[in-house]
Design a protein around this nucleic acid. Structure first.
Lengths: 217, 217
DNA sequence: TATTAATTTATGTGCAGACATAATTTTATC
DNA sequence: GATAAAATTATGTCTGCACATAAATTAATA
């Protein structure tokens, strides 16, 4: 790490093989392997079998953002959490959703519109659809008590997904719900979740003005 | 992983010790250790010496955002990158900066204002200050050719820092620079970088409307 | 009874050695 | 000269063993 930092090993350079490093540092190859592996994970090295280990050409900075359940997020700011389920209805996927998520035209979706509050103040407005053929059990859940978000976290097996973050001007409806001026800049998080190649849910969260998402590098 | 997904081991549960798992799966303890370590890294398990390993109570979803050099970001969208150094001047830290970064009142800062372009279209507006006592060499760099961002990436040893993402309405000045309506929602990234407990640089990037930051989980 | 010290124990980290695997390089074949 | 097979090699992953370390538990002490 120091050698990369001090440019002894420059970007693109092939660094000594594990055995050589083990000899130099007087340790086992397994130990070198762990160290190099870890540096490769953090994006500092590129490794390929037989080809050897190189200092990464574009040291992409990777930041990890932690996306907690909204309730936890609010509570970690020492505020009281509550939410209102503004609307819920079953619907069919739009043509856009069909294409984007590979949903069939006859798929059944549950749409939910929720306002999350922090000490009675609006915190985030959530628009969500849930793929009922993936998680039919959610129809029996009492979503007035536990938010759909938490129900899914608690009842869905491991899943993968995508996040997209952007900024958007508040529409009239959003400004009314979030109690902010129309056109206010909102931090928006779009998230889709998949379980075994099947789309389970997609959410758009529009956070009230003033929200900041922090990360550590 | 399957057992956590299938709720055989529920959140908060204490799972068997490494030795027991090694016996059950017929492998070495080191192998179990690596597997559990990896699950702990991804936030699925909580481990503590002596206390044992538990299924994480709040499975915090961690998303990794890759923050490339802006040039790479633009180029990866198949656009031509260019930038204008709008202004540069040496300045003293404001009281706010002194407090926030522990800078002395007599510290010398280099302030830079840059517009990054994608195919001549404004892409992001950058406001940056650099701590000259940390990297005095930058005064000799030709920042018209290589952006300060890239100079720092190429010439600064490994560093740690913080990111904060938020949304903000474009000011009159920003709207003029980014060629967008005043009040347009801008995606803003604030970043501070430290080397060995010394603040090196802090940047605010305001992206032109339409920008989206993507992550993979 | 409260405090401190000693013991226990699950995880953390290290070693040496072995075999697996993917790429590359060399050799053999047509 | 082009293609296919064999050998080589750096990393990937595992085993078995050992000792370190932090935290919980128990025993000893004031």
């Amino acid at each position: 790490m120091r050698r990369i930092g001090d440019r002894v090993w420059q970007p693109g350079d092939l660094i000594p093989a594990e055995i050589e490093l083990a000899e130099e540092f007087g340790c086992a190859r397994a130990t070198v392997n762990r160290a190099l592996q870890s540096l490769a994970d953090s994006g500092l090295l590129d490794r390929r079998r037989k080809a050897g280990t190189r200092v990464a050409l574009n040291p992409v900075r990777k930041a990890t953002v932690e996306i907690p359940v909204i309730r936890k997020d609010v509570e970690s700011r020492s505020k009281a959490y509550s939410f209102d389920l503004l609307d819920r209805k079953q619907l069919s996927p739009s043509v856009l959703l069909q294409k984007q998520y590979g949903l069939s035209k006859s798929a059944h979706l549950l749409g939910l519109w929720t306002l999350h509050r922090s000490d009675t103040m609006p915190f985030a407005y959530e628009e969500r659809w849930i793929n009922l053929s993936a998680v039919p059990e959610i129809l029996e859940a009492d979503l007035e008590t536990l938010s759909a978000n938490e129900w899914l976290v608690n009842n869905t097996p491991l899943s993968h997904g995508e996040f997209a973050f952007s900024a958007r001007n508040a529409s009239i409806a959003e400004s009314r719900i979030l109690n902010c001026p129309q056109g206010a800049a909102l931090f928006v998080a779009d998230r889709s979740t998949w379980v075994a190649d099947q789309p389970v849910t997609a959410v758009r969260l529009a956070y009230a003005p003033g929200f900041t998402m922090n990360t550590t590098v």
